[in-house]
Design a binder for these strands. Structure first.
Lengths: 349, 349
DNA sequence: CTGAAAGCGCTTACAG
DNA sequence: CTGAAAGCGCTTACAG
């Protein structure tokens, strides 16, 4: 019960004008004489009037609100992307309705439904699963523009996308290690589809990065060794364990690539605990350039993603779509480049 | 233009019932026979009907949406608190309208106004400035419950608050250092009201922590030395510079307390670059226990804030308020405790 | 420039 | 259980 308060009718009555006139004075549309406007504004202030955005939106057909769906706001990656989104959309007059799915597909479906019912003008989605896009397709069908961010989803060809060139990013990281002379290069990943030749070509960043890793090795004439692939759940402890297992092998890797920032914290810790010198005994590369990567010793070599820009581009793309007012147009795909930042964890020095 | 689509009237017509009946079947309120419900549901599915939440909210007086206003979502502190909020409110059926103010008071005022016009059922606010609460008071007056989080604001005695016992947190940190024998204990802070005896008693965490620092010293019979207070803007670089200045003094501190996690990254780096051994030549304490604090060597001693819980408690508090339906009730104040986690940066070992 | 009327899409009494 | 009517609070043609 948002304690109703005065309506436009009350303001109009107090100002001695018609509601349509009061609406024009307060809403900044149509024509009103300066004198009338003043009287209406005075009456509104006196009564403590606030526009009912619900009623307005119902008529105008626009809520000036966009939905943003992510799997985990507490992850610095999404938090940073989110700030990129708001920095672009807020000045344009749009508010953000946020949903945190925790990677649960059902939660994502519910979020999309609710946002659609609340009549958001569009949504930006970091999907929970690459295989399931029916709910997104339905939203688009209902006239809600969708921009996919960070992750591609199968079955939604109409959606705009803003992603990072993950395959190249991984390739570049491996190339860096090859150049330094490494041949036994391991990887810590949360990708499910392990097998390099799998037919289920993954669409998610971790899967794409894993593919890049495999291909870079092959291009260098090295047959990937499954013993050098450490699979972890998406948390630090699991990455720690996976790293420890790899390092305990009879023929352990001399270099390690982590496909994500969370995994990198676990791997870094494991290498420390194992007592291996970096980069002398083991070279390590992480993903995402977070503040801590230059506080550890040695500093961590990383693949730096343009995370904030991922958000700003997605925001701008959605604003464009909304401005287009649902006119059909072919989907727009933006792919941003990640950049290798070489530091002490790989560079002998 | 969210391409309007079929309305309840269309569904009712297709099902051969009155709109009121169709509404009852679809909305889950009132009484409908099973047979009628089925027919309505079938018609709705056929037409691709989706409820117009705007119209519903206008009548029910509830949007099932809360506003959350923070100064910086990209800061792990707020990102984590935010996830605590959504974890509590989302299962209760509430969506989150997010505003990122960047610490700008005007942006905060606009956000509150817009959220109020969008008829959110309540707001959780991490305020930009402690001195300015008129807009919040006004929201409360209009019937929008307000829960202040992390920071107190003057002039809004009606608001619920969920904060951390910052004075005690700082006191405990200083006590730890005193116990280890330190007498020259410095502080890196972004608090503006520097002077210990200032009459403008700060309400913000940084100011309260600074007060705790001063009082802990005095309680130990040590007169605070202004030369040991390093003031920085709220960023890593500025904290780095401030720390470097302190360490360059003729009689430098032997221990340093940082009143925030961002400042701690700058200070840690400065101590490294200065070539001082921790804790032998300098002991360091930070705020907030982030993943990196156990990756650096030595590990960082910190005051660990219950950040996630700050969010869940604020969420629950707001839900309670909303459930109360605007019935006047005295404000509720929750103060959570921070905990010192002693590690290598202070413990000789 | 101003006003009277219609209507956005629902839910809520009120009858039956 | 079902329906006809009223109404939530605005904006939008349509006249004047």
């Amino acid at each position: 019960m948002t304690g109703n308060g005065p309506s436009l009718i009350d303001v109009a009555r107090a100002a001695g004008v018609a509601t349509a006139t009061a609406g024009r004075a307060l809403g900044g549309y149509g024509q009103v004489s300066a004198r009338t406007r003043e009287r209406v504004l005075a009456a509104a202030a006196e009564l403590g009037y606030r526009t009912n955005g619900l009623a307005r939106s119902m008529i105008t057909g626009s809520t000036q609100t966009i939905g943003v769906v992510v799997t985990d706001v507490a992850n610095p990656f999404f938090a940073t992307a989110l700030s990129g989104i708001t920095d672009v959309t807020h000045p344009a007059g749009f508010e953000v309705l946020l949903a945190n799915t925790g990677g649960d597909l059902d939660a994502e479906r519910r979020a999309i439904t609710v946002m659609s019912e609340k009549r958001v003008d569009g949504v930006i989605v970091a999907a929970a699963q690459p295989g399931e896009g029916a709910h997104l397709k339905q939203a688009i069908g209902a006239g809600v523009p969708v921009v996919l961010i960070d992750r591609l989803v199968r079955g939604v060809p109409e959606a705009d996308t803003v992603t990072i060139d993950n395959e190249h990013a991984a390739t570049e990281a491996v190339a860096h290690l090859l150049e330094l002379g490494h041949r036994r290069i391991g990887v810590i990943t949360e990708a499910v589809s392990l097998v390099s030749g799998s037919r289920k070509r993954g669409l998610f960043p971790s899967a794409v990065r894993l593919r890049g890793y495999f291909e870079a090795l092959r291009a260098a004439g090295i047959e990937p060794d499954e013993d050098l692939v450490g699979v972890a759940r998406y948390d630090r402890g699991s990455a720690y364990d996976a790293t420890m297992r790899l390092l305990a092998h009879a023929a352990p890797p001399t270099a390690l690539l982590c496909t994500d920032n969370v995994l990198a914290t676990g791997a870094y810790r494991a290498v420390q605990d194992r007592g291996l010198r970096m980069p002398g005994e083991l070279s390590l590369i992480g993903f995402d350039d977070e503040p801590w990567t230059t506080l550890v010793r040695p500093e961590l070599t990383v693949v730096e993603q343009p995370t904030y820009e991922l958000g700003t581009r997605a925001g701008r793309q959605l604003l464009d779509r909304i401005a287009d007012g649902g006119r059909p147009r072919r989907p727009h795909h933006v792919e941003l480049h990640a950049k290798l930042v070489a530091r002490g964890s790989t560079l002998p020095g």
